[in-house]
């Protein structure tokens, strides 16, 4: 939608909102704002207790002997606490109930199967088509793109591939140095432009370098960008376009998602898919207590498979995603 039309629409919408709200409130009278009263301090200990309870909600749920409402409530809380989201949680619970499990343990097994089944079937291998194959790595700020690339380069190197890294994050201060440090540690060449250089041209240069030096994989690091910033999303699309126009085969576009991210992750996946046709997800920071349940919603709704998990800061801490193991971990009491 062109900007000007958007602006017109918004203004019209503004008029509409104002008008309709006023009409609905014909009886008039401004809302009074009552004074807050201080009960927060008193409420906090209560919260601690509640938190402790939620953490063990699953443990408690599966210890129950009967499938009563309290059991379902605890199960719901556990899924919500894993960032599965309200809609998918409701769907999953409905599906489990439909199977009429007899015991809490049966319900757990059913749920685990449902989650694994709803995620399995997808092709989770990394595609390295073309010579060189290009892997474009994208995501919002701070999800772990550069670290993921280092881990990926390590694994590809171990598998006998010749890798070139493209430092196309020309925006963040010292992002290039960060990738260079990894490159030096892994003995993998890093192609970089000047700070502020056009990222698409850096990616293109890396492609040329790979061709010249007979490397078979180019991994492109890009600047973190919030999916709501349309101009930055356009820039990303341009990187991919320039690569493809120059005969590159961008065989993987990996969206790196922070495992601690909540429901915004779904919007991220949607927006990045629209911009660069994401082929797979890398879920990072899963070595903490976060479960990354938003990935379930992304697979179910958008069909983008999770391909890799980041489980630590070491170079070997990137593991292929396994739906069964994931479902099991998610429901681990």
């Amino acid at each position: 939608m062109p900007t000007e039309t958007a602006v017109l629409i918004v203004l019209l919408a503004l008029v509409a909102v104002v008008a309709l709200v006023l009409v609905r409130r014909r009886s008039g009278g401004a809302a009074s704002r009552s004074q807050p009263n201080p009960t927060l301090a008193a409420a906090v200990p209560d919260l601690r207790r509640r938190l402790g309870r939620t953490r063990s909600a699953l443990a408690q749920a599966f210890r129950r002997s009967a499938l009563d409402e309290a059991f379902w409530e605890e199960l719901e809380e556990a899924l919500l606490a894993a960032d599965v989201g309200t809609e998918v949680t409701a769907e999953l619970l409905a599906e489990v109930r439909a199977r009429h499990p007899a015991t809490p343990e049966a319900a757990r097994v059913a749920l685990e199967e449902l989650i694994a089944d709803s995620m399995s079937g997808a092709d989770r291998s990394l595609h390295l088509d073309g010579n060189p194959a290009v892997i474009l790595v994208v995501g919002v700020n701070g999800t772990g793109k550069t670290t993921t690339i280092a881990k990926l380069a390590k694994r590809l190197g171990d598998e006998g591939h010749r890798v070139v890294l493209a430092a196309a994050d020309t925006f963040r201060a010292a992002a290039v140095e960060q990738l260079r440090t990894w490159g030096a540690r892994l003995e993998v060449p890093v192609v970089a432009g000047a700070s502020g250089a056009d990222p698409a041209s850096v990616a293109f240069e890396a492609l040329e370098t790979a061709r010249r030096e007979r490397a078979d994989v180019v991994v492109v690091d890009t600047a973190g960008r919030l999916q709501s910033k349309t101009n930055l999303m356009d820039e990303l699309a341009k990187i991919k376009r320039v690569l493809e126009r120059n005969g590159a085969s961008v065989s993987e576009v990996l969206l790196v998602l922070d495992g601690t991210t909540g429901q915004n992750a779904v919007g991220q996946a949607e927006a990045f898919r629209a911009a660069v046709d994401v082929t797979g997800l890398v879920l990072t920071k899963l070595d903490g207590t976060a479960k990354g349940g938003a990935a379930i919603a992304i697979e179910r709704r958008l069909g983008i498979p999770v391909k890799e998990l980041g489980v630590g800061e070491g170079l070997d801490d990137l593991v292929p995603f396994d739906p069964r193991a994931y479902a099991e971990a998610l429901l681990e009491p």
Binding site: D83, V140, G142, T260, G262, A294
Partner: peptide, 10 residues
Amino acid sequence: DAMTGQEAVN
């Protein structure tokens, strides 16, 4: 991070 999910409490 404003995008943090349930993990924010932990």
